[in-house]
Amino acid sequence: MNDTKTQEQEVAVQDTDYVVVRIQHLKKSFGDNEVLKDINLELHKGENIVVLGRSGQGKSVTIQCIAGLMLQDEGGLEVLGKEVKEMTRDELRAMRIKVGFLFQSGALYDSMTVKENLSFPLTRVLKLNDKQEIEKRIHESLESVGLEDAIDKYPSDLSGGMRKRVGLARTLILRPEIMLYDEPTTGLDPITSREISELIVALQEKYDTSSIIITHDMLCARITADRIVVMNEGKYIATGTYDELVKSPDELVHNFFK
């Protein structure tokens, strides 16, 4: 637990230039398939980075490495100033509390109600026992995504957009410093997509997080991105704001903005 405290202090001391995630020459392959060839990225505090790329190119692999779900083959990957590969079990645990991960499908636990889904990380991870405190946090979290009515429903009763919102609420309930979004708008209609994207921005401001958003949805990218990174064949080929990249002469980049 000491590590967590020192990290918190570090974060507090540093100003907005503080780099929360630093990726250097990251490589990862599955068998013969080299998914990530040479990835370099720096996520600054309070920044929203959108990673654009075509499906099936291993965009998600990057953030899965950040969350410690996979280990990179080569290269450096620092989260909150510590190399993920060298973390002990307890350090990894502490890091994961600081890093929120929203999965493509929302990944709600099917056998539990929304309320139980939200209390799951509170009782297991933060080891909270005070029922009133848990109740308060759940309500606050659901309020921030606008879904207080769904508290006693099961995930199977919810629509795709609602699941994403509950998933978001469950991730935010631990008050993470870094948010990783894996295709937050996939499979949603344009209106819901826009709502979710706007919600991401609103929550970003409310909880003061830094985010990496993996997507191929241009609408989402335009709404959420401070900076966009375009990925192709395991490398980041371009970076810049939305307006900068629209004007890019590179054909590969240009294809996304048509």
Partner: peptide, 22 residues
């Protein structure tokens, strides 16, 4: 298997909850 496919197990893992225990 379906929890794995829908990333529920990963979700437990990244939230620092212990999927093996649960």
């Amino acid at each position: 298997g379906s929890m794995k496919v829908t990333e529920q197990i990963d979700a437990m893992e990244v939230s620092s909850a212990n999927p093996v225990q649960y």
